[in-house]
Simulated assay, not measured.
Amino acid sequence: MRDYKLLIFDWDGTLVDSIGRIVMAMHQAADQRGMPRRSDEAVKGIIGLAMPEAIRTLYPELTTAEHVERFHASYSDCYLAIDRIPSAFFPGVEQSLASFLEQGYQLAVATGKSRRGLQRILDALGWQDYFDITRCADETASKPDPKMLHEILEHCGVPASQALMVGDASFDLLMAQRAAMDSVAVGYGAQTLTALSAYGPKLSINHFMELSAWLNQTVAEPLTEEIEHVG
C-alpha cells in the first residue's frame, strides 16, 4: 500500500449528506424558471460539476450565459433556503477527519461547490483553518479537469503518488485519473459503486470509517476486495 501524505475529499455526497437537498433545490429552481423537472437520477448525475456546467448539461436548451445565470441564481436561492442549517456529516466523518489530522495527514477539499457556498459552511463550523487548502469550482476549472488537484498538490508540496482523492461521483474519480492520483469511491452519495468501479478506484466503501481502517492497514486484503464489489 502506498504511503499517502495528503487526503483530498469531495464535499457533497462524500463528507456531508446533502444530495437530497441539491436534488430538491434543482427541482424548485426548474419550477421557478418554468423548466421541466429532470429526474432525481439525472440531477445526481451532474453533482460535482461546476454549477453553470451542471445546468447546461441538464438543460442544453438554455443557450445563453444569461439564461444559465438566471437558473443558477434561482438554484442558489432555493438551496440556501433549504440549507439554512448546513447538511449533516455522514456517520464517522468528523471522527475520522480528526484522527487523520492527529496522524499527520494533510487534508484538502476539492469540490464543485462555489467558494461562497463552501465558505458559508466552513464559517458556520468554525473550520476556516481545518483543511490545508480547499478548492472550489468557481475559482478553478470544473471537474473532471485535474487543475484543482494540481493546485492542491502544488500548495501542499506533495506528489500525486502520495495523494488520495476520495469522492462519490465519476467526475471525482476521473479527475484523479487525469492527475495520475489514486482514488477511493464512496457508495453512499450521488452514484453507485457499480458505476464508479469503471474508474479504477483503489478502494470502494459504503461507510466513511472504512477509509480509516484501510489506511491503517487493519482491513485484510480479501475483505477489501469484497468491499470493492458491493453495488
Rank of each mutant, 00 (worst) to 15 (best):
L80Y: 13
D77P: 00
R2E: 10
S197W: 02
K44A: 02
I8Q: 05
A54Y: 14
C156H: 05
A141E: 14
M165L: 11
E151H: 12
M26Y: 05
T134E: 13
Q177F: 06
C156S: 11
S161C: 03
G20Q: 15
Y4P: 03
K5M: 05
R38V: 01
S114W: 12
D3M: 05
L62A: 00
L6T: 08
Q119I: 00
I22M: 14
Y75V: 07
H27V: 08
Y59L: 04
W11V: 01
L125N: 06
W214S: 02
L97G: 07
T57H: 08
S204N: 01
L118G: 03
I46G: 01
S183M: 06
M24Y: 10
K143V: 00
F171D: 00
E210G: 01
L49Y: 13
V158A: 02
C156I: 05
R116Y: 14
P159Q: 07
V230S: 06
V166W: 01
G189M: 01
A179L: 02
R37F: 03
E53C: 02
R56G: 01
I85F: 11
T192N: 08
L101T: 11
L80T: 09
Y105V: 03
S212Y: 04
P144M: 00
A108M: 11
I121V: 15
D172A: 05
E210C: 00
Y188Q: 06
I227R: 04
Q28A: 10
Q28V: 08
I82D: 12
A50L: 06
Y4F: 15
